[in-house]
């Protein structure tokens, strides 16, 4: 009986802590203003990204030169995005409010991916400028 109770409490605590941790990663990007370059590259003119843009944005992120410092956050948010997708599918018919929340969170994940893309584009441009300056 005791292990069963510990198991249930631990799993629910794990889900809660994992969601909160991922939301803290997303929250740090929420107030970042996106540059015109990233809007041009992604073709999204408005401030809102669709949830389904996430993987497309990640593909664009992977086309840019890799930065070692953002790999772990991409991995964590990617896992969170997958978890939200499963939750949305499960809740769509039975609990629509949960499905709507999951959809909103998935949009936040897409915005996070756009911020990461923006950082990588800025980094690549800085590198190019530096190289051009060295060649001159």
């Amino acid at each position: 009986m005791m292990p069963a109770a510990i198991c249930v409490i631990s799993v629910s605590a794990f889900l809660q802590f994992f969601v909160l941790h991922c939301r803290s990663l997303l929250a740090s990007c929420r107030n970042v203003e996106l540059s015109a370059h990233v809007r041009e590259v992604t073709g999204v003119a408005t401030a809102v990204f669709a949830a389904d843009d996430f993987y497309r944005l990640l593909q664009l992120v992977r086309l840019c030169p890799e930065r070692r410092d953002d790999r772990s956050e991409i991995l964590a948010v990617g896992t969170y995005f997958g978890f939200l997708g499963v939750l949305r599918r499960l809740a769509r018919l039975s609990v629509p409010r949960v499905a709507a929340w999951a959809e909103q969170e998935r949009r936040n994940c897409s915005y996070f991916a756009a911020v990461v893309l923006d950082r990588r584009i800025s980094c690549s441009r800085a590198l190019l400028t530096q190289q051009a300056a060295e060649n001159i």
Binding site: P3, I6, C7, S10, F14, Q16, F17, L20, H21
Partner: peptide, 13 residues
């Protein structure tokens, strides 16, 4: 929290 809850859950399982 993630670390402790995942580990406790696995040992309970």
């Amino acid at each position: 929290g993630v670390y402790y809850s995942a580990t406790a859950g696995v040992y309970a399982l």
